[in-house]
Structure formats: C-alpha cells, structure tokens
Design a protein around this nucleic acid. Structure first.
Lengths: 164, 164
DNA sequence: TCCATTTAATTAACATGTTCAGCATGAATA
DNA sequence: TATTCATGCTGAACATGTTAATTAAATGGA
C-alpha cells in the first residue's frame, strides 16, 4: 500500500492513474459521493452497534426533531427517502417497537408516525455520540470554508434541469 | 404543489416545517445527499434511454478514460464502487457485450476489464450529451464559488475518523 | 514439498434506491 | 348519487450498498 502522491483512492490503495483519470475521478458527482461517504463512514460503526442503518437513524432523528407526529409523506420529505423505502423502514422500526403508526380517523389513508418510549430512549442514548461525530467532521474544515461549502451545497441542491 | 418558501423539499412538494427542522434537514450529510441527487437526477433519463444505470455508466466512462485495461480492484477504486457491486455490474455489462473480461495468464485470480467495440460505440454516443449536462450543472454556480465548492469537497472527501 | 497465510474476486444475505403498478380512501363533479 | 379523478400509501421487481463468508490462486516459510 503506497500513498505516494496526492491522487489516491479512497480505500488507501495505490495510485492508479496520475493524469488522464483526474477529470473523471474528481468530477463534481464523484466528489459529492466521496465526501458523503467520508462523513458517513464515521457513523456506521456506532449505528451498527445499535443495529441501525443510516436511513433508520435518519427516520428516528427526524421524528425527534419534530414537534408533532408527521404523516408518511411528510416524513419522506424530511428524511429525503423515497416513499417505498420509507414504507419498508417504518414497518421494520415498528416491528422493533421503536415507532408507532396511527391512522387518522378522518382520513383512513393517512398514518401518523411517532416515536415510542423505547424509540425515544434509544435516540437519547445515541444522540450525544452522533453530535460529537458531527462536530469532528465539521471541524475538519476551517469555519469560513465550511460555511462556504454549505452554501455551495445548498445552492447546488436546488438545481433542477427543468428550470433551464 | 406549492413552492412558497425557500425551504422546499426535493420533489417539489410543499414545505413541511419552517423552523425546527432546518438543523436536521440542512445538515452536512443531508446537503451532500441532496446536492448529489440534484445533479444525478439530470442524468438518469438520458441513461435510462440507453438502459444504463448510473453505476454502469460510471464503469463505462472510467474504462474510456483509461489507457490500458484495469484489473477489477483498480476499477473499483476508480469508480468508487465496492467490489461486490462492481462484480455484479461487470457480469451484466459483459452479458450485454459492452465489456470483456480477460484473465491474466501469470495470475489466474486477476482479470483485466476492457471495453468491447460495442461498448466504445455506446460511450461515444452518450458522452456528448453527458458533457453537456455536466456543463449545465457546473454553470449553476459562479465560477469562483464552484471552484471553492470543489475544493471543500475534496478536503472533506479526505476526512478519516481514524486520523483523529 | 507441505501447509498456513495472503490476495483477487465472487457469492450470500439483507437493506435501500428507483421506477412502476396497484389498492384503498377521499374529493370533485356531472 | 354515481362516476371519475386525485391522494396516501404499499407491493413488486430489479439494481446497488454493505458486511461477511467463500472460493481459487499465489506466496512464504518450516
């Protein structure tokens, strides 16, 4: 394993191409992917220790940050999960007793999702470690550069091809 | 579908929460996810028209950008795909006749991956449209801000929790 | 040479991403 | 009110993400 140059792969393996490759391997989509992977890699072991996936944790965390119990569609928006994925996740978390699903009497199609006591306790247990990891990642960049990065990402996230 | 405010979801649906939510929904990992999704969304219809997934296209594009035929491990590094995913993708692209797999005589474990003529032709057909889309996305931000963004992402992509 | 160890790649198993279809419920309207 | 349409959610099908186990081949000593 040799990391001689600055163009190295993401798993610590040796350089593959020193020139031709750069435009591809360091394109915007690839950098977005790698940056996200780099930040998520820090979380997975902790979540795995609690038998949670990234997405399951996202759902629990979103429910914690909200006041009331959201409907499935609203929860999908907040967590940025597609409805079918969220549907499966809800089923699983419900089976584990971490969340509950209550149908709205006025509209039987809708279901309100909320944390159970067990869910609240699990989040309370994990949250501090999660926050500590976030801080570590954010502090990887100087304050101002981090703010610029967030701003740039915010703008990019609003890109829509149809708007052109 | 109402997009009244600036905090809107990514599927064009209405605002869910105007305040409490922001710290979660606009955290770094979520913004990375949304920014990537926003850029990828532009490509999917074009790739789907050629019956290609994002990852399959990444493999074809990487093979095009290289001089020789890489081994599977090297290709995994370049495309940022995990070995099991790449293994399946290679099988599929090989079945479609777009790439070929040649085992190395000196070391029967290794296989060299290369584009077939059909693969080369397919890439040549798609590449121009792909480049055009990239330009659109890049131009969504002013030049300097885009450069800053790339630099920030590059730095973030190098984050390793073990380094702390 | 034999065997334990490493290495390259694949397979297995489960969860999610993505698109499409379908089902049940509500709402709108003729 | 009966029909049509829209909405909220779930199911299906296939591809990938992720971790762990496995196969096959090469390597490195005893």
């Amino acid at each position: 394993m040799i990391n001689s140059g600055r163009l190295v792969t993401n798993r610590g393996e040796e350089e593959v191409d020193g020139d031709t490759l750069r435009p591809f391997s360091e394109s915007l989509p690839m950098l977005l992917l790698k940056a996200r992977e780099a930040s998520m890699r820090a979380f997975r072991p902790m979540l795995a220790a609690h038998d949670l996936t990234e997405q399951q944790w996202r759902v629990l965390r979103a429910l914690t940050s909200l006041d009331g119990a959201p409907e499935v569609t609203a929860l999908a928006d907040i967590t940025f999960l597609l409805a079918p994925s969220l549907s499966r996740i809800i089923t699983k978390l419900e089976d584990r007793g971490l969340i509950s699903r209550d149908t709205v009497p006025q509209d039987q199609r809708r279901a309100l999702i909320s944390l159970t006591r067990a869910g609240i306790e699990l989040v309370a247990e994990i949250a501090p470690q999660s926050e500590a990891l976030y801080s570590l990642i954010e502090n990887h960049l100087p304050h101002e550069r981090f703010a610029d990065l967030m701003e740039g990402l915010q703008s990019l996230a609003e890109f829509r091809i149809d708007d052109i």
